[in-house]
Design a protein around this nucleic acid. Structure first.
Lengths: 143, 143
DNA sequence: CTGTATCCTTAGGGATACTG
DNA sequence: CAGTATCCCTAAGGATACAG
């Protein structure tokens, strides 16, 4: 895909992710797909942050255009969304973000169950999440 | 500090970072401080993405309010900005973001020098960057 | 229920002038 | 040069109605 129809303000790798995720909503969809076992339009709408329908639809299209997610399902029917390999590859970023938040906002932001396990053995937790993205499993990220 | 006067849409750790960094500019300042040895107003202004003066000033205030950066210097004089411990602690996130971009945008986004070293020995690169944030060193992130 | 479309308000942010 | 202030416009996004 590579920087599709972006502004491309620079060729910096940090800027590159901002071109896709530099807003208050996009990353929440990735979170829902990665940790919350949500994969439908309605599921995303239910999340605590209360994304509105037009924003959700727009972000789903953008994420698909960027090759982060893909949609499955007969056209005109209920679609099921899933992370692509590129999207799943965001896992280390997501986990480090989660760890940082847990460390620096302990009061309002309770550390998720897997956090101690992640600090001790990052690769183990990564493998577990990835495995669950294929098969089934339990929610590793409680709000 | 903890979620100062934020909207606080939820208590999710992913959402928590979005409350501070969910825009197209804020993370670039952290990048400049962390990897580019920039620590002045004018330095930030020079970056490729061309942040405008009002946005820069506003973001510097926000980052300071969130305890991510601190400013040093006699009042009314030229200020020097630096990452706090909380800000430096974003290093793993920044490195994973950089690695992801390099992996998925190889065409326009040349892998930075340290990337191979980071993949092989993450902690070594982290230590090197942290060391340099105190003393001196060479730029580990070329655009 | 899965989306799409529309309306409308606010916030983000570009340009630029200005002050110490 | 460091930082503030203003003007103005566009994009982000909330609410909600609508369609398959």
């Amino acid at each position: 895909m590579t920087r599709t129809s972006d502004a491309c303000r620079s060729h910096c790798p940090i800027n590159f992710v901002l071109e896709t995720f530099g807003d208050r909503w996009t990353l929440l969809i990735v979170r829902d797909l990665m940790f919350k076992q949500k994969q439908t339009y309605g599921g995303f709408l239910e999340s605590d942050e209360r994304i509105s329908t037009n924003i959700l639809a727009e972000r789903l299209k953008r994420l698909e255009a960027h090759g982060i997610i893909e949609r499955h399902g007969p056209k005109g029917q209920r679609q099921v969304y899933a992370l692509t390999a590129k999207g799943r590859d965001l896992l280390p970023v997501m986990l480090e973000i989660t760890a940082w938040s847990a460390r620096h906002d302990a009061e309002t932001n309770t550390p998720p169950d897997f956090l101690p396990a992640y600090e001790a053995n990052p690769d183990g937790v990564k493998a577990a999440v990835l495995a669950q993205l294929n098969g089934d499993g339990v929610d590793p990220v409680p709000d």
